[in-house]
Structure formats: structure tokens, C-alpha cells
Simulated assay, not measured.
Amino acid sequence: MKAEMREETVELDGHPFHLRHWGDPVAPVLLMLHGFPEYGGGWGDLAPHLAQRFHCVAPDQRGYGRSWAPPDVGDYATSKLVGDMAALIGAMGGGPVTVLGHDWGAAVAYGLAMFRPELVERLIVANGVHPVPFQRAMAAGGAQSAASQYINLLRREGAEKDLAANDFERLVEMFLARYRDGWLTDDKLAAYKAEWARGGRLRTMLNWYRASPLRIARPGEPLTDLPDLPLDRLRVRCPHLLIWGEGDTALLPESTEGLEDFAPDLTRVTVKGADHWLHHQKPAEVAAAILDWLPEGKETP
């Protein structure tokens, strides 16, 4: 699958953001939003399968890679992360565009769809979660609460030093090695480490976790004092595709229960033999799910 990748750095609201592109610049835009601990280049396995249909645009999000990385935790509030990508859509012509988010990138993708619906034509999420079902699951004290305990470790002051020690040994083990399954080649791992090693980046990457208001119950100790959420403002009104690698052990199926209440035009697709890193492990299947869901034709990657 051949699709040449191009790179550039643009200014959004006066700050630099690094972008990667695949496909014809005049094609419809697919905005690809990575999660932790990836960067825009993490879409390199999937984007070539979609570049005949889309102009794939993958930014290093705030705090990652070669993009702007302010030091303060408060600079990573969801509203600011969403604002970055709204500015990017504006710089590309104003939308609406198709948005694809994975992991933390899904949080930004949902934010765009909920709070800037005029910018989002269609929403695709790959192993990512809407804030309400996810908060409910993490607060219940059950399996998702247990699976999410690692977030408390990542929020600790100094966590970046622990993750960076011994050539990022713990970071690789926590997030990539246990799911490796052959996709994480030596060259790809070296590219990840080069991005993590940029000055201060690991701290600013972790600030996404520190800035999040989501709360996690201890296993067996449900939280009963959650604040009321503005449920009507947290709806996805555009067509929504959720693609799920069934072997994910960090995000469990219960974290998406009730999603239909917030996304009435929802389609679910399960990818067997994949886990949290489905876009690396099964890029052709993920691309086929996306292309088959689109309203025009049944192209295959």
C-alpha cells in the first residue's frame, strides 16, 4: 500500500503544530487524532489504506512530538485541546470534516462532535470512549475501575521520570510491549522513543491525564458523589462509527455501554484478533470498516 507521507508545521492561534499528510490535498479531509503515548506518525499503518478516499491529516497534538507543549497542567483542559483542532479545521477551510480518534484522541474527537458540531460531518472512534459511559464505568467499582487504576500512577508528580528510566523501559512495558504482537518493529519503537525524548514532552503528554476531571473508584468501592453532567450538551448528532478491538484490557466493553443514548446514529464494528492497538495490528480491516460505513460506494483499501 503506497501513499507518500508529507510533513509540515503550521501556526494555530500563534503556536506551532506539526502535521503529517497522506493523500490528495483536494480530497475530503480525514482528521486523525492520536492518543497516549503516540504521536501523529502513529497513523502511518492505517492512513495509506484510506488515502485514496481521503486527505488524511494527522497532527501531533498539544504536548506531543513537534507541536506546542506548554508546561502547565491547566493548558491541557479538554476545551483547549478541542480548540486546537477546531483551529486546525478552520485553517484547512472550515469543515465540516470526518474526524477519527483513538484513545485520548477520541476524547478530543468527541469534544469536537459535541461542542463544535458544525465542524464534524462524521465521527469515527477506534477504541476510545465517550466521557459519560466511561465515567460511569470507572465510578462503579467494577472491572473498568480496576482496569483504570494505572491512571492514578500516571497522574502522580514525577511519573514521567519513572516512565523514562532505563530507556523508557516501563513506558514500553505498560503501553506497548504487552500488546506488541509483531506490529511494534525496532524501527517503530525507535521512532516513538525519539518523540518521547524531546525536551519535556513526556511530562506534557502526562498532563492530559492530570488535567482530566474524570474520577476512578477503587475496586469494590463505587463512587456515589459524582457531579451531575449536562447530558443534553454531550450528544453526538452526526453519524458515528465505533470500531472496537475486542482484546483491549485497558478500555473494556462496559466503558461504551449506553453510548446509543448519546449517539443515536451509532454503528458498532468489532475487530477480532485485535486489542487497543487495532489500527496497527489490523489496518486493512479498520480501513475496510470505515470505507464500508461511508455513504458513497463500498471501496476497499
Rank of each mutant, 00 (worst) to 15 (best):
T270D: 15
D103I: 03
L30C: 02
H55C: 09
H18G: 04
S79R: 14
P25T: 12
G42E: 07
T204N: 02
L266P: 09
G44I: 01
H240G: 08
L50R: 00
H102T: 07
D186M: 07
A165K: 15
Y76K: 07
G220C: 10
W196H: 09
L163M: 12
D186R: 13
L176T: 08
P301R: 00
H130Q: 10
P28G: 07
A191Y: 06
P131C: 13
A263V: 02
R233A: 15
G101D: 02
P70D: 06
R53V: 14
T267D: 09
M32E: 04
R235I: 03
E7V: 10
W244N: 01
M174I: 14
L30F: 12
G90E: 12
D181M: 09
E254V: 15
H55Q: 10
G83M: 04
A194K: 12
P264G: 13
P71F: 06
Y110D: 01
A58S: 14
K2Q: 15
A51T: 01
R178G: 12
A217L: 07
H55P: 05
R6M: 12
M92R: 14
P283K: 05
A194N: 08
P222W: 11
V82F: 08
D265P: 02
G101T: 03
P219E: 11
P48T: 07
L266N: 10
N152H: 15
P71W: 06
R210S: 09
G220Q: 13
P16K: 08
D261L: 14
W208Y: 15
K2L: 11
A250N: 11
I290E: 09
L30S: 00
L176C: 04
A106R: 00
A3F: 07
A113S: 08
V236H: 00
V97G: 01
R198W: 02
Q135F: 05
L112H: 05
R53L: 04
V73F: 08
V269S: 10
A191F: 04
G247H: 11
M205K: 00
D275H: 15
R20A: 11
E246L: 13
A143P: 04
G41I: 04
L33Y: 02
G40D: 11
I290W: 07
W293G: 02
E299N: 09
L189F: 05
R155D: 03
V286M: 13
W208P: 01
A274C: 09
R66P: 00
L171F: 09
T185P: 08
L46K: 05
A274T: 06
T78Y: 10
Y150K: 09
M85Q: 15
I124K: 00
G42S: 15
G105H: 03
V269K: 12
C238F: 00
A107L: 09
R210M: 07
F262Y: 15
G200I: 06
A113V: 05
H18K: 06
G142N: 03
